[in-house]
Design a protein around this nucleic acid. Sequence first.
RNA 1: GGAGAGAUGGCCGAGUGGUCGAAGGCGCUGGACUGGAAUUCCAGUAACAUCCUCACAGGUGUUCCAGGGUUCGAAUCCCUGUCUCUCCGCCA
Length: 426
Amino acid sequence: MLDPKLLRSDPDAVAANLAKRGFKLDVAQLSSLEEARKKWQVRADELRNEKNVHAKSVGKAKAQGQDIAPLLKQVETLGSELAAAEAEFAKVQAELEKITLGLPNMLHESVPVGADETANVEIRRWGEPRKFAYKPLDHVELGEKLGQMDFAAAGKISGARFSVLTGPLARLHRALIQFMLDLHTGEHGYRETYVPYLVNAQSLTGTGQLPKFEADLFGIKGESGLYLIPTAEVPVTNLARDTIIEANELPIRYVAHTPCFRSEAGSYGKDTRGMIRQHQFEKVELVHLSKPQDSYAEHETLTRNAEEVLKRLNLPYRVMALSSGDIGFGSAKTYDLEVWLPGQEAYREISSCSNFEAFQARRMQARWRNPETGKPEPLHTLNGSGVAAGRALVAVLENYQEPDGSIKVPEVLKPYMGGLDVIRRP
RNA sequence: GGAGAGAUGGCCGAGUGGUCGAAGGCGCUGGACUGGAAUUCCAGUAACAUCCUCACAGGUGUUCCAGGGUUCGAAUCCCUGUCUCUCCGCCA
């Protein structure tokens, strides 16, 4: 949610910023609703004040044993007038909320302007893509040759966009997750958290998935109103919902490993092959809560911490600053990490690190106490994958493949693999 | 799954229709005392929305788990829901 005060005081500046995303803000509609809001809110407040004053005088009169009948007569019509004003106010409020919850975040000035991902800007690059003497296989061929990746079985059990891993490959997947968690908790100072995988609508509204992107989520049948999490960002960031955090506790850095569930509505035909785009995948997520003045420094730190995973795994990657046309709904600035996949001969997204500024915090009333003002103010939230485990597995398979179809185990993962050096067909 | 109890300010806790935004305590902040501190004493100490204002200050409204209802008036009465605790059952 955008700062309502800014939206009111300078809607044209907001509109200009959102226009960079290709989002058209109807300033005229907004200001007329705003005018109506003010009118009805003030009116309802006045009527309520009148009511309170009357009720008090009735109480006093009664305490003094006076006849209260004439006083009661005075307020006869107040009730219905008040109800009418309240109804109008509620109507206007609901309309305004519908609009404001649907507004994307304003972009940081450093975000490159462009229509789509072709306008993304490469910030830096690490590692050299390996030269193969043969045409490298992709992870699907490698996994099936090993006999440890089975899409047919997954299709039978669940359907498309699921996978089954077995044996050392399943262990490699788990090893990646353990390695990432240990790195972030042990060396980067993150607090490990275990959180629910089913969340309520309020949490999803807080982080911005609802109300606009319900189609991307899996909802649970029945009365519970719960949804499967599309990312750990949702439960972890909502830890701060409806809380006031003292300044000396910030920044807070959480890491969590969770499965993620996405309906992938609207991505039909995209990445249908292999494990790149699944309904269920594992991810290690980094979440920062920060003072507003520190959030861009935190954003750099978070991104570097995610990059460190790829460096330790010796996977070539590049860092992209997402353009205004490609960036997510709630983000003010996003870096994507793209890992080199020899099987596709392309860099593919493996992590997305975003600064949401106060966008999520305002939706979820996540605040910190600013010592300068003594008042609770929205804090800044950030998150990034550190990194997606499914895609990391894909990257390891493709980058560490040998001509015979076996997979060398990356050095840092060996302790997690019981000392296994190479994954072969059993 | 069955039975019962409960949810009040940062925390504990009183309040069962009117002057209650809410006693008292703790904590915190400021002041007095002191060479300095502890003790003691005095004072202050919620959030949200909104109006006015350059700002400070101030006005109004809302909030005693949430939503609805009764009433001129609700922390207090009624209904629904959520959560927590205790006991029984069942289980990882």
